[in-house]
Amino acid sequence: MPDLDLITQALARNLKRLRNERGYTLDALAARSGVSRGMIVQIEQGRTNPSVGTVVRIADALGVSIARLLDYDETSEVRIVTDDQAVQLWAGSSGGSGVLLNGIEAPGPLELWEWLIMPGEGHTSDPHPAGTVEIARVEQGELVLTLDGRDHVVPAGSTASYEAGWAHGYRNDGDVPVRLTLVVSVPLPPR
């Protein structure tokens, strides 16, 4: 994994640059994202390590992928992310993880994730912007996908696709780890 300070500084630099490119004041970005002005200031100054939910809300409000917000090397036409450069954004209490493998703007943010959810672990997500879709491919175990309060069981070897504009989450109620690959496509925000 890349150095946490490197990621924090990249987030600070990229957030400020993208906010300014879009002409958003701190207050405007706070209103669009639901993240407090104070938190945005702390992130832009590299003084905090925000939660996954906070980074997702800011990326959604800016209309960029999380990968673009965290990118610390934007110098190549082909972005190759090796395993040791992938960014872990979620850690479960029993060793699970959510790792952002890569992401692009196509034309809205498009992200590829790798998840490991250990038995008894789960992760909940706030609704993404309307029109956001996710595709989850379960490689091992049995994923319990909760969408708008309803559970859906996705066994190994299956792929689920769904609108992610609702509250949703991923859970492992079984006794073997769940491994899944997740693609998230977020539409561009209205201007």
Rank of each mutant, 00 (worst) to 15 (best):
Y24H: 13
Q42E: 12
G23R: 12
D84P: 07
V55M: 07
P109T: 03
L110G: 03
A91W: 00
L112W: 09
Q88G: 10
A30N: 08
G53R: 00
D27P: 07
R22I: 12
V78R: 12
D84M: 13
G103N: 07
E77N: 11
N102E: 11
V81F: 09
L110Y: 06
W113I: 10
S97M: 09
S94Q: 11
N49L: 13
T48R: 13
T48Q: 12
A59S: 13
V52L: 14
T48W: 13
I43A: 02
V81M: 09
W113Y: 15
G38N: 10
R37C: 04
E111V: 08
P50G: 01
L62G: 00
S94W: 04
L89H: 07
I43C: 02
L62C: 08
S94P: 05
L26C: 03
R32S: 01
G23V: 13
S33P: 15
L29Y: 06
G53Q: 03
V78E: 06
Q88Y: 08
I80P: 06
G53W: 00
S76Q: 14
A59W: 03
E21F: 14
G96R: 00
L29Q: 04
L112V: 10
G63R: 03
T54A: 06
R68E: 03
G92N: 07
D83G: 14
N102C: 14
A106Q: 13
E21W: 15
W90K: 01
Q88S: 12
G34Y: 11
A59G: 10
S76R: 14
S93D: 04
L69S: 05
I43Q: 01
S36F: 11
V56A: 05
I66A: 00
P107K: 10
R22M: 14
A59I: 09
G95R: 05
L29C: 10
L18A: 02
E105L: 09
R47M: 07
L89D: 06
I104D: 00
A106S: 15
Q85I: 13
G92I: 03
W90T: 01
I104K: 01
I104R: 01
G63I: 04
G95I: 05
G108M: 07
G96A: 06
R47Q: 10
I66M: 05
I66Y: 00
G38P: 08
A31H: 15
D84Y: 13
S93H: 04
V35R: 06
R19M: 11
R47G: 03
N49C: 13
R47W: 07
N102H: 13
L26A: 03
R19L: 14
L112R: 09
L70N: 04
A61S: 08
L69N: 02
E111G: 05
P109C: 06
